[in-house]
């Protein structure tokens, strides 16, 4: 049996990728076997999963799903597609986390922010000039749909407090704290540790400026609870938030979300067991 764009067809001994393309999708020039692009003369084996795509042609939502499937290790796509992740705060961290998780194929995203897009956001946040004045939830949903049309997106257009966090995020697999305000970061972690105990959690603290890349780290505070950042670099006059370093932190957050969803941390024996002390 061969799987071609996820449809079953009979396997014939000696069949090559180019034969398959000629039969099923004439003109296809992006040929993927078991997650890796291969040459047309590749001989196929029984049980191979093949994807045939025409370069430059906009694929259907279904095909985009196949492509995500194709680019992931087998088993990964179904797990992330079935996952729900909450993101609190859609600024420099949250907008980048959302885009990374959408690209990796996380099925459902809950996106919370109360603010509108302002010109001062554009130095680091994933919005565009033509989105100035839009709700951030609305603007980001528009952008995410342009990346992966089949995503389930739930905008939460309000200022969160502890009660709202519990109400909205009790059922998510992982909650990502991307607030700007330090007090809200503390509120969120207290809620996560006391009222959202089954939920994975990835917060951030210390992401401003253009300091050393390698001081941004992912610390495990408790089982399935992580904090990303250098713990020190506050946003302040003279030390602004800048796209590169905020992006480093955001992508550490996004990768940690993925690790939690795939239970990679558990399999590895529990990620870097660093000191919990976060007082510089």
């Amino acid at each position: 049996m061969l799987w071609v764009n996820e449809r079953a067809m009979a396997f014939r001994s000696g069949i090559r990728l180019s034969d398959l393309a000629a039969e099923i999708r004439p003109g296809a020039d992006v040929l993927v076997v078991n997650g890796f692009p291969r040459e047309p003369d590749t001989e196929l084996a029984d049980g191979d999963h093949c994807w045939l795509i025409r370069r430059g042609e906009v694929p259907s939502a279904e095909e985009i799903d196949y492509l995500l499937y194709a680019r992931h290790t087998p088993g990964v796509h179904d797990r992330v597609k079935g996952a729900t992740v909450g993101i609190m705060g859609l600024g420099g961290l949250g907008s980048a986390v959302a885009i990374a998780l959408a690209r990796v194929g996380v099925g459902t995203l809950l996106l919370a922010d109360f603010d509108v897009v302002e010109p001062t956001n554009l130095n680091r946040q994933h919005y565009f000039v033509d989105q100035i004045g839009l709700r951030k939830t609305e603007a980001l949903c528009d952008t995410l749909r342009r990346i992966t049309p089949h995503l389930v997106l739930r905008p939460i257009d309000q200022r969160l407090d502890a009660a709202a966090m519990v109400r909205h995020f009790a059922a998510v697999d992982v909650l990502v704290e991307c607030f700007d305000d330090a007090a809200m970061k503390a509120v969120a972690l207290r809620v996560a540790l006391t009222e959202l105990k089954g939920v994975g959690y990835v917060g951030a603290s210390g992401v401003a400026g253009y300091g050393d890349n390698n001081t941004i780290r992912t610390a495990r505070l408790y089982p399935r609870v992580y904090l990303v950042g250098d713990g020190e670099s506050a946003a302040a006059p003279g030390q602004g938030l800048m796209a590169p370093r905020v992006g480093v932190a955001a992508h550490q957050q996004a990768n940690q979300v993925l690790r939690l969803l795939l239970e990679a941390a558990r399999e590895d024996g529990g990620d870097n067991e660093t000191s919990r002390a976060v007082i510089p």
Partner: peptide, 10 residues
């Protein structure tokens, strides 16, 4: 006691 202190920015 374990204290975790946050700084602003995000």
């Amino acid at each position: 006691l374990e204290l975790i202190r946050f700084v602003g920015g995000g």
